[in-house]
Amino acid sequence: MTTITIRNNPDRSRFEVLDADAVIGQAAYVDDVGSDQRIFYHTVISEEYGGRGLAGVLAAQALDETVAAGLLIVPVCPYIKKYVGKHPGYAANVLAPTPVHLEFLSASLAHRVRQ
C-alpha cells in the first residue's frame, strides 16, 4: 500500500502530492508579494494516479491552507476555478482573475525561467 501525503512546498511555490517521497502531483501558485493574494495557475496529477480523487484532495488542502494563511484565492487554473465553483464555502475568499493578475503571473513565471 502506498503512503499518499500532501504538503506545501513554498520554495517551489506549489502544493505537492507525494507517494512516499515521489512527487506525483501539484497545484502551482504565485503569491502576489505585498498583497494578500495567491494565484493558482496549474494543477496536475500523474496519469498513473488518475481517477483516485487526488486532485480534489490536493485542491481542498491547498485552498484550506491558503485561506488559513489569510490569503485570497485567485483561480487562473481551470481545475481550481471549477473546484471553487463547486464548493461555495470558498466564495468569500475567491477573487476573480483580472488582466492585472494575468500580467503579474506572466511576469513572475518569466522571471523564474530566467533564473
Rank of each mutant, 00 (worst) to 15 (best):
F40H: 03
Y29S: 02
E65H: 02
A69T: 05
N8L: 02
H101Y: 09
A27D: 08
V44Q: 14
H42Q: 13
V57H: 10
R38Q: 03
L18P: 03
V84E: 09
V113T: 04
S106Q: 10
L72C: 05
V67D: 00
G50Y: 01
H111V: 05
R12I: 01
S108A: 15
V67E: 01
P75H: 02
Y79R: 02
Q61P: 03
Y29P: 02
R7Y: 00
F104G: 07
V44E: 15
D32T: 10
L58W: 11
L102V: 02
I24R: 09
D36G: 04
P99Y: 09
L63G: 06
A55P: 09
K86M: 12
E47F: 05
S108L: 01
L95N: 05
R38T: 02
E65D: 15
K81W: 06
H87Y: 11
E16G: 09
T5W: 01
F40C: 03
P75K: 01
I24Y: 10
I6H: 05
L58G: 12
K82Q: 15
T98I: 02
V67H: 03
Y83Q: 04
V67P: 00
H87I: 11
G89H: 09
I4E: 05
L58M: 10
V33K: 04
H87W: 13
L72F: 13
G89N: 11
D19W: 10
G85D: 08
A68E: 11
E48F: 05
D21N: 15
C77E: 07
P75Y: 00
E16P: 11
H42L: 12
A91M: 05
G51R: 04
Y29I: 01
D19P: 08
A68L: 07
G51Q: 07
D11R: 13
A62T: 04
D19Q: 14
D64V: 08
I39Y: 04
G34Y: 06
N8Y: 07
K81V: 01
H101T: 02
S108W: 02
I4S: 09
V76E: 04
I80P: 00
Y29W: 05
Y90F: 14
V17N: 06
L58V: 10
V23I: 14
S108N: 07
V33P: 01
V23W: 12
V33W: 00
R112N: 05
D11G: 07
L58D: 12
F15C: 03
N93I: 00
A96L: 10
V84D: 08
V67Y: 03
A62Y: 05
V74I: 05
P10N: 06
I4C: 06
E47S: 14
V57L: 15
A22K: 15
T43R: 07
T43Y: 09
P78R: 12
E65T: 03
I73Y: 00
A62V: 03
I80V: 15
